[in-house]
Design a protein around this nucleic acid. Sequence first.
DNA 1: TGCGATCCAACTGGATCCAATCTACATGAC
DNA 2: GTCATGTAGATTGGATCCAGTTGGATCGCA
Lengths: 235, 235
Amino acid sequence: MDNMLEQKKQRSKYRLQRQSLPEALSESLRERILSGEFKEGDPLIQEAIAAEYECSRMPVREAFRQLEAAGLIVSKIHKGAIVSTLPSEQIMELFELRATLECDILSRSLEHLSDEDLAHSAQILKRLEVAYHTRDIARVGTLNWEFHRSLYRPAGRIQTLAILQGINVQIDRYIRIQLLLTSGFEEAEREHRQILSMCKDRDRQVVEFMRGHIIRAGHNLLEALNKRRVSDPAA
Amino acid sequence: MDNMLEQKKQRSKYRLQRQSLPEALSESLRERILSGEFKEGDPLIQEAIAAEYECSRMPVREAFRQLEAAGLIVSKIHKGAIVSTLPSEQIMELFELRATLECDILSRSLEHLSDEDLAHSAQILKRLEVAYHTRDIARVGTLNWEFHRSLYRPAGRIQTLAILQGINVQIDRYIRIQLLLTSGFEEAEREHRQILSMCKDRDRQVVEFMRGHIIRAGHNLLEALNKRRVSDPAA
DNA sequence: TGCGATCCAACTGGATCCAATCTACATGAC
DNA sequence: GTCATGTAGATTGGATCCAGTTGGATCGCA
């Protein structure tokens, strides 16, 4: 999150984004769910969270509503909230959705991609590789999406990006689990470099290559995940 | 919403779905926004809403969080919430997203479409036509999406349907405005019948026909909307 | 009259309090 | 001993209360 400044560069120069407590809370809680601190099925007790952040239960409740809308938790009336669980088929469906939407947006983006955009992407890719080789899992998850997004932004498709962002939040935690379990990211790393290179050439075949990249990542993830889910019957 | 029972038929037979006040509130408020009672840019004052529903401001605040997550309102800290506004390009983008996702899911659905599914769709279409000819705008909006969804459900793509549902909520209010302004729905009505007929024949060309149907609807909507937006500079 | 500082009303944000509901354990009847 | 019922503790849902912010109105001054 230390690259906020770069991201906001097109906005007003001196804009300080204040956020309400519920927003800050939901951001922090989201990160803790993605990091695996709160696992699938874990109950989230309002009072405990409130105590941790030294605030009342009220902002916690509003944060829960946001997390629920993002699909990270499910809450039943008078029974509290638990971290949501996604069946394998739905995880794969999310990867297929990504494939569909990212191919579409990448195709549109190619026509507007400037050299500065590509330089920016290259920079993110470099940081992503550093994060991967220092085993900084959280940063790998963040930067992986950051890299993809940097390629799509020139398309100017705000709604598509928003949906993709939401999908990414949903699957990020599983990607992190995969990274913790296996080291099957080298393939993705090679592919990322090839994607960037093809984008530099404005080679339209990159669109179909991206589709394969995403679907392969999904399959790899599911394979690792299913191994874990049968051995650990927490699901 | 009177077909709830049908939809839940595969669940436990006697399940009563209680909902919390915030949920009920956000549902009601969403409907009021979609119906145009609250227009783009209108401020939503917590206290006023709470008074209307004879409850405290607390459940209203939680409902606002949900509506914000759905993209129907935007709230600034210490300045309250207003009904969100979508620029024309983003409305068209949402229609293009619909085209992409609905073609994909329809294609998958075709392989599982049973005769019962088709009978159900036909029934909805009939109700949709009744609603249109009795000028029941709210029902037209609801049933239009209901018809589309009934064709996609057999695909079993939960996440895709959830995203499409979200998109539909976003554009429903503009569809209703269009229905109020013009009567350009006859074309869509003809197309609906043709879509259903092609589905009955399991004709795969229905996928591309659906794409045209959605894109045409988007263009018609934007045309009507732009006329209104230049004459009424509320945006 | 025009500009600016100050004050006030309206509203939102957050804390605390009370009520409703669920869970688990204990008690008692058969 | 087992099953049903009752009850207490925990937890959430909703109301009320207080503090902080905003925006506009008012007043003062040049």
